[in-house]
Structures are given as structure tokens and as C-alpha cells.
């Protein structure tokens, strides 16, 4: 038993440095966002079970497009060649187009599940959440 306690203390000491790191912030924001949306959109039980898988899938795809583009821009250096610049430009256009297409497709799917009225509520909730985030960033920088 004493040995077990010693191991426990060792684990605790080992973990302390990690404790200061916030759990992945992106996930927290995502959790906050979906909680915010749930409250605002007032989904019924049956809407909820169909809506969340589709909405999560949509977000995964949009996030992947944005991340890919962001990383491609980060990789590009100041000495980028004309050819590389052209490729990056094409990727930018393709990405924006894909975002629009995905948005269109999933909007249709979501509208079928929750109806037009709640779809509008959803978009308003998303904007409101964005506004809250922007305000908290502004407050922090003031």
C-alpha cells in the first residue's frame, strides 16, 4: 500500500507541469459554441438526433478546408516562385469554392431536418456566438 502511495505521488508530480496547460482551447470553444447553439435553436429530440451528426460533419469539412489553406500560406516563404504562387492562388480559389459548395449542400440537408425557421435561428446563433467571441477578444486587448 505504501509503495502504491509513492507511485501515486510520483504520478502527481509528473503531471503537475501539464496541469498548467489549458486543455485544447479549440475543443473548449467548440463545446461552448454547440452549447450556445443548442440553447438558441431549441431543437426537438428527433431534430437533435439527426442534426448534430450532419452539423458536426459540416464543421469538420469546413475546418479541414480552412486549416489546409492556412497551413499552405504558412509554408510559403517570401522567396516564393511564380509557379508556387500560382499554385497557391489556385488552391485559394478552389478552397473558397469548396467552402461555398459544402455550405450549400449542408445547408440544404440541415434545412430538410430542422426547417427554414430554425435554420435562420441557427445562422443567427452562430453570428451571435461569433460576436461574443469577438467582444471577449476586444475586452482582453483593451
Amino acid at each position: 500500500m505504501y509503495k502504491a502511495f509513492k507511485i501515486l505521488i510520483f504520478i502527481w508530480l509528473f503531471c503537475l507541469p501539464f496541469a498548467n496547460h489549458a486543455q485544447n482551447d479549440k475543443d473548449k470553444i467548440e463545446a461552448l459554441r454547440v452549447t450556445f447553439i443548442t440553447k438558441k435553436v431549441e431543437l426537438t429530440n428527433s431534430e437533435s438526433e439527426k442534426f448534430w451528426p450532419i452539423y458536426n460533419e459540416y464543421n469538420d469539412k469546413v475546418k479541414a478546408i480552412k486549416k489546409n489553406l492556412r497551413q499552405s500560406y504558412k509554408k510559403s516563404s517570401e522567396t516564393i516562385s511564380d509557379k508556387e504562387a500560382e499554385e497557391l492562388y489556385q488552391l485559394d480559389i478552389k478552397s473558397k469554392q469548396a467552402e461555398v459548395d459544402i455550405h450549400k449542400l449542408y445547408s440544404e440537408k440541415i434545412k430538410t431536418i430542422i426547417g427554414a425557421k430554425k435554420f435562420i435561428k441557427l445562422r443567427i446563433a452562430e453570428e451571435e456566438f461569433k460576436r461574443e467571441i469577438i467582444n471577449s477578444i476586444k475586452d482582453k486587448s483593451d
Binding site: K26, K28, I29, S136, K140
Partner: peptide, 26 residues
């Protein structure tokens, strides 16, 4: 399973919201 958050996060890290917010949103 993420625990449900209780209140809005105040100390927002910019990098964590870059997928949500565009430059034009400001």
C-alpha cells in the same frame, strides 16, 4: 465525452477561434 461547459470562456485564445472568425467579422 467532453463535459458540458458552464459559462462562456473569457480568456479566448485567438488561435483557437481562427476557424470561426474572418477578418471581415471585426
Amino acid at each position: 465525452i467532453p463535459n458540458a461547459p458552464k459559462k462562456t470562456k473569457k480568456d479566448v485564445n485567438l488561435s483557437s477561434v481562427q476557424d470561426l472568425i474572418d477578418y471581415n467579422d471585426f
